[in-house]
Design a binder for these strands. Structure first.
Length: 135
DNA sequence: GCCAACGTTGGC
DNA sequence: GCCAACGTTGGC
């Protein structure tokens, strides 16, 4: 089991929308590193859901329903997408300032590589975030 | 709205 | 293959 973090701008596709839809095709990734992360996802892997730009906080959890497959909306391009399913909206979210202030979480890839839209998360980071958002 | 960080493109 | 110019993302 691996853990990830996916970013979405709330005015484009907020987590409430994922909750309503139940699942969605995570499309539109046009960055090689993000694409490679998508391709490393396994069915059942859990993805923290981050709202970028507005909010700047981790608001909930999704899971990988379908592993990477070719993105037909990108003719000629070698791009992939995965299907994500809704898991939960956290009882309380954790924002970027809190992550930066945390001795362990300040080392997250999210902070180091702030422009990447699909990022790996360590087990330790994941467990800490679950603890904080459910306490 | 500005700017830093980073990726991509294209001229040489 | 280097590097300048440019575009995009996302925090502030």
């Amino acid at each position: 089991m691996n853990y990830w973090l996916v970013k979405s701008e709330p005015h484009v596709y907020p987590i409430n929308q994922l909750e309503k839809d139940g699942s969605t095709a995570w499309e539109g990734v046009r960055n090689y590193q993000a694409r490679n992360n998508l391709r490393a996802m396994k069915s059942g892997d859990l993805c923290l859901y981050y709202h970028s730009n507005e909010g700047r906080e981790i608001v909930g959890l999704a899971k990988v329903l379908k592993e990477a497959y070719p993105d037909a909306s990108a003719p000629g391009g070698d791009w992939s997408l995965v299907d994500l399913g809704f898991v939960e909206i956290f009882p309380r979210s954790i924002n970027l300032a809190e992550l930066k202030a945390h001795p362990v979480l300040c080392k997250m890839e999210l902070i180091r590589q702030s422009r990447l839209s699909v990022l790996p998360v360590s087990t330790e980071e994941f467990e800490l975030i679950m603890e904080i958002t459910h306490s």
